[in-house]
Amino acid sequence: MPRIKKDRMLLRLHDVSKAFATSEGPLQVLKNVNLSLEPGKSIALTGESGSGKSTLLHLVAGLDTPDSGSIVLNGQNIAALDDAGLAALRRGTVGLVFQQFNLIPSLDVAANLAFQARLAGRFDPAWTAGLAERLGLKPFLARYPEQLSGGQQQRVAIGRTLAVRPRLILADEPTGNLDEATGDAVLDLMLSLQAETGASLLMVTHSTRLAARLDGRVHLRNGRLA
């Protein structure tokens, strides 16, 4: 596993570029993006639709690989990892929160909460139970995702991510599907738990109001950081 020299940054992107093949030729989505994130800090990633925010998040999560440049996360250049290495990274180092929650419909809330932590071999029943308590999910543990409201589902998704105690939380419009009040409540919970666990947070959002609540903010325009 390639190790990089000791860096005080948890995440460092250097000259990261990514293009997608389309019927009209390659579409350059990210162009020489440089970005760094300290441990325990949070950054909002804003930009218009199609600016490359989600692509950047996917690259950092190890869901996709950059065409060029390096992404160093927790001392590892993830661009050099193979499929199994990327999967291990997703299991243990990063936690993903999606706009559509992406819970596992066949598992109940309790099993969804524990799922990723158990996959990563880091399941701590007491910690997970505490999370369920904090997220107000205790009454719903035996329910299935389709029996929950959007806000409840997003709380399960956050709980599932935090149950692993990841070093980095990646959130893609986590409140995009929720009304403003519910969205604010969910974000409050996420930020407080992030601060409590010492994790870093990179959050994609359209909302400048929500972005203002994070430690920093970067803006993407046409694949470049503005």
Partner: peptide
């Protein structure tokens, strides 16, 4: 896809 995203190859 979500299971893959959570770390399964």
């Amino acid at each position: 896809a979500p299971v893959w995203a959570m770390g399964l190859t």
